[in-house]
Design a protein around this nucleic acid. Structure first.
Lengths: 142, 142
DNA sequence: ATAGAATTTAGAGTTTACTCCAAGTCAAGA
DNA sequence: TCTTGACTTGGAGTAAACTCTAAATTCTAT
């Protein structure tokens, strides 16, 4: 129910350095300290760290995450802002997914090309094949 | 057929600063200069920049991109390394896509929750609804 | 011919997100 | 009691990828 910074680090996959850095940046305003001044992470704090990880992994900078946390602390008056933020984030993720899928197909094309090139021992020869001749400029040259 | 650095910047969406930076980092060894010392970008160079953009957008650091370009310049003896690199990159992209999709569903959950919260004027009330009561700990608290 | 826009270089500065260090405190085991 | 290991703080250092500056040169349009 109460974790040391080391235990919290283990649970989240972050380092203790990073956890202290996040606190310094205002991302962990909920973490308490015991009488000796040691941080005590609750399960709730671990949940917050998972939320932070989710936003971070989807491209939100720490500043944006801090904004969300500040809004959360302000209470229900900021519900619309938070909703708007999540909607914007959803849009960003979908765009990112789309870009990633487009680029994945380019890389997969490269793999097909290089598979043949390795087989033939020559990139030029592979590019000369009917299969790749037409795509060449449509995708990209290298 | 021959573009100034400004035109190349326009075509790629990069800045002239960034193009010069890339050249300094060894990412544009193909770009020629005219007799006055001005860079002249060919269509082939623009294709290279698109390739660089593809690798960058899928998470490859500039160092890795430079490695690829160096291998390319070495010729067909490095075909296997390049194929391996593309395969690794494909794997990275697929993992990234998967993580992004997982996190997208978390964000979409948040949007549903906050939609209700805005409607009710209270996050607590929304979290109390049957629809969200059970999911609360499964996803995350905030 | 000349004004003004674009380009050149070397090098300094910025931002983000850590990452590490030093010097000190605190709790638990041999 | 002593040592070991985890923790504390403030602050310095790092890596990546730009981003900007200054002074000089070159191109373009009138």
């Amino acid at each position: 129910m109460g974790y040391s910074i080391g235990q919290a680090a283990q649970k989240t996959g972050l380092t203790t350095h990073t956890l202290r850095y996040y606190e310094k940046e205002g991302l962990l305003p909920f973490v308490r300290k015991n009488s000796a001044g040691l941080r005590v992470f609750s399960d709730n704090d671990i949940n917050w760290l998972n939320m932070i990880e989710c936003l971070k992994a989807t491209g939100m900078p720490l500043k944006g995450i801090k904004q969300y946390i500040d809004w959360f602390r302000e209470g229900d008056t900021t519900l619309p802002q938070r909703l708007e933020m999540f909607k914007q984030q959803e849009k960003n993720i979908k765009e990112h997914l789309h870009r990633l899928q487009t680029n994945l197909s380019k890389i997969s094309y490269k793999i097909r090309l290089y598979d043949k090139a390795v087989e033939l021992g020559s990139l030029e020869k592979a590019q000369g094949l009917e299969e790749f001749k037409n795509d060449r400029l449509k995708l990209f040259g290298h």
